[in-house]
């Protein structure tokens, strides 16, 4: 049986795991590392619920093999709040009621966080297209878009 010994940094921690060839990064995060905050919505890259940041880029963890990530840096939802403080995006999602069932929320937060790093002052339309790979069936997106725009404004204000 083909097994692979992998070393990676996950949320700043050095981790080592063994995975089979068929296991995706999502399988590894959830099944081997027990980081279940990253969600499995489709397994085919169509819903974005498993969005994590791999070597600085947001990706679908279901479309990456565990075997590929040796030497990589991975950031998941579990690392988003720092030192007991919510990230501004997390706080704004609560303030704006931008989640209902919450299953899409970790993926959307990671996507939005990565996106705002490349575009700190987006328009509504830009946010909508940036989040087009993250399905939400509950909210109709309205409050999610408002929360991201508001968080972006707050993050810009705290930069200056």
């Amino acid at each position: 049986m083909a097994r692979h010994l992998i070393n990676a940094m996950v949320n700043g921690d050095r981790v080592e795991f063994v995975c089979g060839t068929g296991q995706t990064l999502l399988d590894v995060l959830r099944g081997e590392l027990h980081l279940t905050g990253t969600k499995n919505g489709c397994g085919t890259g169509d819903c974005g619920a498993c969005t994590v940041v791999l070597n600085g880029r947001p990706i679908n963890a279901c479309l990456v093999l565990g075997a590929e990530v040796d030497g990589s840096e991975i950031e998941t939802i579990e690392g988003m709040a720092q030192g007991g403080e919510l990230h501004p995006l997390q706080q704004k999602f609560l303030d704006h009621a931008a989640l209902q069932c919450g299953i899409c929320t970790p993926g959307i937060l990671k996507m939005a966080q990565a996106y705002l790093e490349t575009n700190p002052d987006p328009t509504e339309t830009e946010v909508r297209f940036a989040l087009a790979g993250n399905l939400c069936r509950c909210t109709g997106y309205d409050k999610i878009v408002r929360a991201v725009l508001d968080a972006a404004a707050e993050m810009r204000a705290s930069e200056t």
């Binding site: 959830r30 499995n40 939802i77 579990e78 988003m80 919510l86 997390q90 609560l94 919450g102 970790p106």
Partner: peptide, 18 residues
């Protein structure tokens, strides 16, 4: 405030497969 809110924005909330 939503009682389950913080758990859901931090990935702590446990769903069926968690």
């Amino acid at each position: 405030p939503r009682p389950d809110g913080v758990d859901k924005v931090t990935g702590r909330a446990r769903y069926g497969d968690d």
